[in-house]
């Protein structure tokens, strides 16, 4: 009698526990379908470039999308739609430097990448100011970081829409970012 009751409790307890685990996975993230509009004709902002290999000032601006898998897959798509692939290939680098390695010329934190995209950089990185909406720039910079494994594995994209050209961002080993010690002008491959 006693053991029957115990069995009943343990079985239902387990089911309840499983249910809780499953339910806790709901609403893991909030998808944003209507990000704020792009502002047109923004005031020109002077970029704050640092000479040589000096570290970039760490900005406190926080990326709104680093933990959002949906935004990351958007970022992955935008990376080819906005033709970043034209200069950086699929992260391995071409005219522009590799983005899947551990060296960074202008900093690896989300805010630095954000400003790389918005401001452009002197050795050939065009400025996308006003062209790409702020939210999409965050999506792009998060995706750039996922190329070298800087993001959580359950957030980074797991597959490509087209033929796979490198192992999925989810399976990339995390590389410890390093400030490039090479003078900027010589980093070009």
């Amino acid at each position: 009698m006693h053991s029957k009751k115990a069995k009943f409790v343990s079985r239902n307890g387990r089911a309840l526990l499983m249910l809780i685990v499953v339910v806790s996975a709901c609403k893991r993230e909030q998808r944003q379908f209507d990000p704020p509009p792009t502002t047109t004709n923004p005031a020109i902002v002077q970029s704050e470039l640092q000479p040589g290999g000096a570290p970039q000032p760490q900005t406190s601006t926080k990326s709104p999308v680093e933990e959002n898998a949906n935004a990351l897959s958007d970022g992955k798509r935008l990376f080819s739609l906005y033709n970043c692939t034209g200069c950086h290939a699929n992260g391995g680098g071409a005219i522009g430097p590799a983005l899947m390695d551990e060296t960074w010329i202008y900093g690896s934190d989300p805010a630095s990448i954000h400003s790389t995209i918005v401001e452009g950089r002197p050795n050939g990185m065009p400025s996308f100011r006003g062209k790409i909406s702020d939210y999409q720039v965050w999506e792009l910079s998060a995706y750039v970081r996922s190329l070298s494994g800087q993001l959580r594995k359950d957030v980074a994209p797991g597959r490509s829409d087209d033929m796979n050209v490198h192992r999925s961002e989810q399976r990339v080993e995390r590389k410890t970012p390093q400030q490039s010690t090479i003078p900027k002008a010589a980093e070009q491959p």
Binding site: D34, P36, P37, T39, T40, R77, S133
Partner: peptide, 11 residues
Amino acid sequence: RMPPNKFSPED
């Protein structure tokens, strides 16, 4: 292949 574009209503 066309991304979403968010504008203010006037724009």
